[in-house]
Simulated assay, not measured.
Amino acid sequence: MDLVPLRSVPGAGLLPAPDQVVAAASNVAQKVLYGGIADLRPMPRTLIDDGTLREVYHYRPAGHVKEQGDPILLVTPLAAPSSCYDLRRGCSLVEHFVTEGRPTYLVEYGEVSFRDRNLGMEHWIDEVVPTAIREVSAHAGGRPVHVIGWSLGGIFSLLTLADERSGDLPVASLTVVGSPIDITQVPLLAPFRPLLNFFNGKGPITKGYQVLGGAPKPLVKWAFQLTAFQKMVTKPIALATHIDDREFLAQIEAVDHFTANMIAYPGRTFGQLYHRFAKGNQLATGTFELDDRTIDLSRIDVPVLVFAGSTDGIAPVGAVRAVVPMLTKAQEVRFEIVPGGHLGMLTGRAARRTTWLVMDEWISQWSTDNRPASPIGTSRKRKHSSAASRSLAK
């Protein structure tokens, strides 16, 4: 039986119900005796390919389910640990896919050090993501891959599929989760944009990442926490009022663990992101200048699913939605607004009945057995989806 928290019981006053007292005592005891409530065991996986800041893993199939169908590749954003997709047992996108019998893979980058300071975005767009896609397809018997990228992982995936140098990658569909395209629509950055442009590339931020060789872990962690400053301030009160809610406490623990394991940015990549995204807002034009070429998002011809979080402060709805009209050659474009902030929309408790279910539907729709007969990597006539304006936010 679900426990009814004190805060929702009419006329309960200040006295908790007996079952709430028992639940709260049990939660406190487990926290004290065992160090936590959340089951943070990562899903078992096997390394199938590696290179410079590139590790590709295959998650082992669940013992009671036969693995079948097209593979899924989860693209990790820079600076974030891969636990974004595998937050905790019972609230893990990886666990969800594996228990459904879907072949599930992930690419992550390992620890970034000072020696990696000269690696730029082209390393991920030219090398890491394309290689991961090809390796996953080969490991899955040559099947096309459903690519899912969260945050910067989604931007890297978009740029990879739009880049002429990537060639014909074996991609069945692309899902982009919480990836900001138009930075002018991010309120968090609005007060700082005039200041960033004032320094014209010679300010303290530029000098800082050049000296440090990138953005160090503590700074990345602080920046992520700053986006949820209000939640940080009210966290003690929330914990006290939800002390009997095991799921709530477990989720808080898992997010804390995720945040504590942030990874540094390589210097050159951080510089490109800072100057071209935060200051230049290049992607809002639909194109991106990289080395000696221009990457045009309109070249993407695979089906694209785009998610925005209804309360996302890092990638607000407008900043994410901006990519939709740019995908003029995609076979289908579907846009969904789902509950949650930047991480919550991907792996929050509500994501289990919103984001994940839409992903399941999308992957099934564009799996090898169900997709229209047309070769991967060639231009297709775009099908305008009636789902483009659909919203799951409550």
Rank of each mutant, 00 (worst) to 15 (best):
L6G: 06
L6T: 03
A17P: 13
V21W: 02
A29G: 10
K31D: 07
R45S: 15
T52D: 12
E55H: 15
V56N: 07
G63P: 14
K66C: 10
E67I: 13
G69C: 12
G69D: 14
D70Y: 03
L74Q: 06
L78M: 14
R89I: 02
H96A: 01
V98C: 06
E100A: 15
G101L: 07
R102Y: 11
E108Q: 11
V112D: 01
F114H: 12
F114T: 12
R115D: 12
R117C: 15
R117Y: 11
N118I: 01
G120S: 07
D126W: 08
A132Q: 02
E135P: 13
H139E: 14
G142C: 03
V145K: 03
V147P: 08
G149D: 13
G149C: 10
W150T: 10
W150M: 03
L152E: 10
L152Q: 09
I155K: 06
L158P: 06
T160Y: 02
A162H: 04
A162P: 05
G167T: 03
S179K: 09
S179W: 07
I181G: 07
T184D: 15
V186P: 13
P187S: 09
L195H: 09
F198D: 12
F198Y: 11
F199C: 12
F199M: 12
N200M: 10
N200R: 08
P204H: 04
K221N: 05
Q225A: 02
F229R: 08
K235I: 11
I237A: 14
A238N: 13
A240Q: 04
T241H: 11
T241Y: 10
Q251A: 10
I252M: 09
V255N: 08
T259S: 13
R268I: 08
Q272E: 15
H275S: 15
F288V: 04
E289K: 07
L297Q: 14
V304P: 03
A308S: 14
A315D: 14
G318V: 00
G318I: 00
V320E: 11
R321H: 15
M326P: 05
T328C: 04
A330K: 00
Q331R: 13
Q331L: 08
E332K: 00
E336K: 00
E336Q: 04
V338P: 13
V338T: 13
L343N: 13
G344M: 10
T354S: 13
M359Q: 09
E361Q: 04
W366P: 02
R371P: 15
P372Y: 00
P372S: 06
I376W: 04
H384Y: 08
S386I: 08
A388E: 14
S391N: 05
K394D: 15
